[in-house]
Simulated assay, not measured.
Amino acid sequence: MNTTASCPQAVKISPEITDEDRARFHEVISTELADWQVEQITTPSKIYPRQEKLLALHWHPEFVPLSLITQRVNAMFPNVSDKMMIPTQHNVLMSYGDYTGVEVDCYASGFNQKVQLLLHFENERVEEAHVLKSMLAHTFKYRSSQLFEYMDTITKPIEDRIDKASRETGADEDLVEMVRVYVTKLQTILDEEWSNVPRESIKNKLIKNYFDAMRPKYGDNLINRIQAYLKGVKKLVKANFSLKFFYRATEVIEEARSLGGCVVIPHPEEFWPILLAKYDVDGIEVWNPQSQRYTEFLISVVNEQNASRPSGSRDLLIFMGDDCHMSEKTKSLETQDAVKAAREIGLQPAWDNLNIRKKLIIAGIDRQSVITEYRSRLAR
C-alpha cells in the first residue's frame, strides 16, 4: 500500500538512483506513442462543422507526427474549403504541405528584451538556407541550455533564487530538499543517457513532466506544491538568462527577407515595445490563447499604421495564433494542463466574436482575405 500518495508533506528521498527513477526518465523523454495516445491525438473533443476557412500559422507539432495532426484537424473541421497551415516549431524549421515555418527566439536590442518572431516560407526557399539553418541551430542549442541553468539553480544550489522562490510559493525546507534530490537524480541520468535523449526533450518542461509522472506515487497535493515551487524557480532563471547570445531581431528578419520569407510578430501583449520598433514585418498576431486582453486595441493599432503608410507599400496584416503545443495531447487527461490542452490548431474564436468582427470589417479583413494575401506574399 502506498502510504505517501495522500500525504501533502514532502518526504525524505535517498540520493541513490533507482530502477524506478530511470524508468520514469525514459517514460518522460519517450517520443513513441502508445495506441491510447494516438487515439487521443486523432480524436478531437469537439467538431466545428460551420468553420469553412482555416488559418493556422502559429502551432507546435513537437514530436507528434504530422500525419496524426492532419487526421485531428480534418476531423475537427470537416467542411473547410480553404486552409493555410504552417508549423512553427521553436527554433527548428519544419514543413507541412507547401510551406515551412519556425518560431525564433531572438534579442530586441532597442529595449533589451527577448522576443519571438514567426518566419514562414515556401518550401523551396529554404532548401539551401545554410545561414538561416546555422542561426537556428545556434539558437536552439543556446535556448536548450536554459534547462541546465534551471537544474543547476536547484542542485548547486543558487541560494538567493531558491530562497526567493521558496518564500514566494510557500515551499518549506523539506519540499525544497526533496526537489533538489530528485532534480540531481534527473540531471545525472540525463548526463548518463545523453547520447540517447531526443533533442526536443531538452527543454524546461522536462523537469515539470518528470514530477508530473510521480503523481501516482505522491499524490496531487504534494506534486502541485512542487510544481508551484518549480514554476517560481523557472521564472527567476528566465529573468536572469543572458540575452547576448541570441541573434538580434533585425538580423533574423534580414535573413528571412533575403530568402523571400514572411515575418509575423506573435505575442505582442508580452512584448509591447516591439510594436514601436517598426520592424519590417508582414503582420501582427492580435490574439492567441495567451494574449486576449488587447485584441481590439491591437486591431486599431494595425489599422492606424496602415492608414499612415506611404502609398504603394504593403499593409500590415492581422493574424491570430492558436499557439497549440501538440505534446499536451499525448498526456493522460489527469496530467494535462487544462488551459494548454484546450488549444487547438486552427481554433481562433476571436474571428467570430461580434465586437472583434466589427473592427475586422472596418479593416476589410477576414480569414479568407488573410489566406489569399499571405499566399500571394509567400509566392513572391
Rank of each mutant, 00 (worst) to 15 (best):
D172V: 14
D172H: 11
E173S: 15
D174V: 15
D174E: 15
V176H: 04
V176S: 06
M178R: 03
V179D: 04
V179A: 06
R180V: 12
V181Q: 14
Y182L: 14
T184G: 14
T184W: 10
K185Y: 08
L186C: 05
Q187V: 08
T188E: 14
D191E: 15
D191K: 15
E193N: 09
W194A: 15
S195C: 12
S195Q: 13
N196R: 12
N196E: 14
V197K: 08
I202T: 06
I202Q: 03
N204M: 11
L206H: 05
K208Y: 06
K208P: 01
N209Q: 08
N209S: 06
F211P: 00
D212W: 01
D212F: 02
A213N: 03
R215Y: 05
P216Y: 08
K217D: 05
K217M: 07
Y218A: 04
Y218T: 04
Y218W: 13
Y218S: 04
Y218D: 03
D220Y: 13
D220L: 12
N221G: 09
L222D: 03
I223D: 00
I223F: 01
N224C: 04
N224S: 07
R225V: 01
I226W: 00
I226E: 00
Y229N: 03
L230V: 01
K235H: 06
K235L: 10
L236W: 03
L236V: 09
V237M: 12
N240W: 04
F241W: 03
L243D: 02
A249C: 09
I253N: 02
E254S: 03
E255R: 12
R257V: 00
R257F: 02
L259C: 06
L259F: 03
H267V: 01
H267P: 00
P268W: 02
P268V: 04
W272F: 11
W272N: 07
P273E: 12
I274Y: 02
A277C: 11
A277M: 12
V281S: 01
G283S: 08
G283Q: 07
E285C: 03
W287H: 15
W287T: 14
Q292I: 13
Q292D: 13
Y294L: 11
E296R: 05
E296V: 06
E296F: 04
I299P: 11
S300C: 05
N303V: 06
Q305A: 10
Q305S: 13
A307W: 06
A307Q: 11
S308E: 15
R309H: 08
R309M: 10
S311Q: 15
